[in-house]
């Protein structure tokens, strides 16, 4: 995935059984953002793979004051890339779960 300066990782082990996953997001390279992020904290949140979109979560982070509104796309992309990787991995392990 493209290096957006915003890192998103699983906050818990993914067994591929729940639609909701816990993710953790933090800024690795503030220079890649247009605005100044709130601080150097890691933001943990849950994401429903079936019902939510990365754009929704990114918008809520902007509204909660974590990022400047000009960075909504870069935050959404960072989440989208990680979610895509999780879904790709789930597709691969699905036969083993059945």
């Amino acid at each position: 995935a493209e290096d957006t300066g915003v890192r998103v990782e699983l906050a818990e082990e993914d067994h591929g059984r729940k639609s909701t996953i816990a993710l953790r997001l933090w800024v690795e390279d503030p220079k890649k953002l247009k605005g100044k992020p709130k601080d150097n904290g890691a933001i943990e949140f849950t994401f429903d793979l079936e019902r939510e979109t990365p754009d929704d979560v990114a918008q809520e982070m902007i509204e909660s004051g974590f990022f400047h509104e000009s960075d909504v796309k870069i935050v959404a992309k960072s989440i989208r890339d990680r979610v895509a990787l999780i879904q790709w991995r789930r597709e691969r392990i699905r036969p083993a779960l059945q």
Binding site: W26, E28, N40, G41, I43, E44
Partner: peptide, 27 residues
């Protein structure tokens, strides 16, 4: 505690914790 919790009006909960130094990229 060093954890901060922010709840968005839509109901989503964000829990903020310090990032370990080892996870931050050196610039």
């Amino acid at each position: 505690s060093s954890l901060t919790q922010v709840v968005h009006s839509a109901g989503r909960r964000f829990i903020v914790s310090p990032v370990p130094e080892s996870r931050l990229r050196e610039s």
